[in-house]
Amino acid sequence: MSSADTSPDGPADDERTTPRATVAARLTGPGRYPRPVVSLADAEWVWRELGVEALRPGAKPEVVRLAVIVGLTRATGARYGDLLRVRAEDLDLGEVGAHTGEGSVLVRHGKHRTVREHRLAPEVVLVLRHWMDVRLELAAELEGSVPRALLLTVHHTHDNGTTVSSGLPITKQGLVLSWRRFALRTNARYGALRPPLPTRFEQVRRAWTEAGVPDLGREVASAVASVEPSSASEK
């Protein structure tokens, strides 16, 4: 038996630092998060709630977009900044009209923009297909082509006194405010019936990454990453 097997401190460093462990650590983030992370059961409830609401007839575009954000985060471990770099062409949702199966997405993770291809479960593909139709409607009033960014604004916004149309790439602040609105509405709706949701989505994301839920994917050539889409504010 090797010394690594008998060591009270567990496996040696080179055994712990496997590619899978390294990727998982990147998804979770460095060190201990200063705010309490929700339980895995509560995080899964959020996904089920939004996944169902997004597919109801007449669902608001913001709900559909939020379901996309939650579904992609659960599937890939991506943070807001990573999601903002996802473009429509980074998705593989299978053939249009075909029975919904698994798909895939390319995500550029972290400050080094490490490109990884992640598997998408059929239920995430279903929500994404619906969002692709919604985003086309949102960008219908824009001149020219639809923005390449996957996540677009769903409301008309104001920038220095000028009205900005919906259907433009959203910013990180827009995502922050969107989740906060959902959390506050949900907490008011359910009251004492269930634990309140935090107003910071990171406390939900970490429940999945710490439990090893996201697909770690496979790293692909960095040449796949190109110019990042520009963003428009949404408040």
Rank of each mutant, 00 (worst) to 15 (best):
V23C: 02
T76G: 07
G77K: 05
D13M: 14
L84Q: 01
T73N: 00
A12C: 14
V105W: 09
W45Q: 11
G77D: 04
T22N: 14
T28Y: 09
G31D: 05
G81K: 10
I69Y: 06
H112Y: 12
W47V: 15
R65P: 01
G97S: 03
K60W: 03
A25Q: 13
S7L: 06
T28F: 09
G29Y: 09
E89I: 09
G110P: 06
D14Y: 11
G71C: 07
L91S: 00
E102Y: 13
E102S: 13
R79A: 14
D92G: 04
P61Y: 03
R65N: 02
L106P: 00
V86N: 02
E44P: 01
G29V: 03
A59E: 03
E49Q: 11
L40R: 13
A98L: 06
S104L: 03
L55K: 04
V64A: 03
E62A: 13
R79I: 08
L40N: 06
S7A: 15
E62Q: 12
L83M: 10
A21F: 02
G58L: 08
P19S: 06
H112I: 09
V68D: 00
D42Y: 03
L66V: 05
A54K: 02
P11E: 15
G71P: 01
R20Q: 15
L91A: 02
V52Y: 08
P36H: 09
L55T: 09
K60E: 11
T28A: 13
A88T: 10
L83Q: 07
P34G: 06
L50C: 04
A75L: 07
V96N: 08
R35G: 02
T17W: 15
L27E: 05
K60V: 06
H109Q: 14
G29W: 04
V52K: 08
L106M: 10
R16Q: 12
A54E: 00
K60L: 11
P19V: 04
D42Q: 15
V23F: 00
G94P: 02
R85M: 11
V70Y: 01
P36R: 13
T100N: 05
G10F: 07
T17H: 15
L50V: 04
A21Q: 11
Y80L: 10
R16M: 10
T17K: 15
A24S: 11
T22G: 15
A12E: 15
E89D: 15
L93G: 03
V64F: 01
G51D: 00
K111R: 13
I69K: 04
E44L: 12
T22S: 14
G58H: 08
G101C: 12
G71I: 01
D13F: 15
D14F: 12
V63N: 06
D90T: 02
S39Y: 06
H112V: 11
G81H: 13
E62C: 10
P8C: 06
E49H: 14
L83S: 05
S39L: 00
A67V: 02
T22F: 13
A43V: 02
V63W: 05
A43N: 06
T22C: 12
P57L: 07
G97C: 04
T100I: 14
P34R: 14
A98R: 12
R26E: 15
L72G: 04
G58T: 07
V96W: 10
P57F: 05
A24Q: 14
